[in-house]
């Protein structure tokens, strides 16, 4: 890993990360604030006004009455796919394909650093920045819950929820990263880097629509992360996390591999 390059990555992309941290923290804080310990109350009343299919597409059909379940349903059911996905798409393209496309990657390769070292640094920034995002979300969740509803958040469960969501996002990020390494062109990098996560996202949303469409979820990586199943202890967090980890490592290796042997465009 190259420290000066990592510092440059931080400098270039810290604003992007901050925007997403602030945006998601506000959402999380508001959702926790909306919680009513005497029953989900007002929010459920509001949701009941919406068409049932719409609510189930958003993954909000099974709202738990506990605070942790409430957060899991509202924040980790739908928003957790959408926001980090956008972050990954933008960052993935920026880290490699953009520099290759505009030619500035040549400046990096004119220094005594191997392609592998450079590209691993770029991949590492992707992973680390996602860790930071989820670490902040965890702290915001614990902090805001502790302020408004002391003792009501199941911290261990919330931690598990964050960890799995974090590793899921890392996987998505590395999909974007892989295509960024593969293509010399930002257009292609974005087409695939955005297309595949959006496809996964759509499949997961559609699978919640009805019984007939539920099979679609099997084709989506997002379905592996099911916040309610984690809350109810229906899935093994260890299994989910190790699955994401293995896919992530494979994607990172593939990205580094294709980049280290390719011809850079003029």
């Amino acid at each position: 890993m190259s420290i000066p390059l990592l510092l440059k990555d931080i400098k270039n992309n810290v604003m992007l990360l901050l925007v997403f941290i602030v945006l998601m923290s506000i959402y999380l804080a508001v959702i926790i604030f909306m919680y009513n310990p005497d029953g989900a109350g007002a929010l459920l009343d509001m949701l009941s006004l919406l068409p049932a299919t719409f609510v189930s597409i958003l993954g909000l059909s099974a709202i738990d009455s506990g605070l942790t379940g409430f957060i899991a349903g509202l924040f980790y059911g739908f928003l957790i796919y959408l926001f980090p996905m956008v972050y990954c798409i933008i960052l993935g393209n920026r880290l490699v394909a953009k520099w290759v496309y505009d030619g500035s990657f040549g400046c990096l390769l004119a220094t005594p650093n191997s392609r592998i070292k450079i590209i691993v640094t770029q991949g590492l920034y992707m992973v680390l920045s996602i860790f930071v995002l989820f670490a902040v979300l965890f702290l915001v969740g614990v902090g805001v819950s502790g302020y408004f509803f002391p003792g009501m958040l199941d911290t261990t469960l919330f931690m598990k929820l964050n960890l799995s969501a974090c590793l899921m996002t890392v996987t998505i990020g590395l999909i974007c990263f892989f295509f960024s390494c593969l293509f010399n062109n930002t257009k292609l990098s974005l087409t695939f880097g955005a297309g595949i996560p959006i496809l996964f996202f759509s499949l997961t949303m559609l699978s919640g629509l009805s019984e007939q469409t539920s099979f679609l979820g099997k084709f989506s990586l997002y379905t592996v992360f099911n916040s309610m199943a984690i809350i109810n202890g229906e899935t093994s967090v260890v299994m989910v996390c190790s699955g994401f980890l293995i896919i992530s490592l494979l994607l990172l290796a593939a990205g580094v591999g294709v980049f280290s042997i390719k011809r850079l465009p003029v």
Partner: peptide
């Protein structure tokens, strides 16, 4: 061995694209 070579080489490209900003 590009990295080892770059240690002892100075390279002026035909047209350098520098980083933005």
């Amino acid at each position: 061995k590009a990295a080892a070579i770059q240690k002892i080489v100075g390279y002026v490209p035909e047209e350098t694209a520098f980083f933005d900003g």
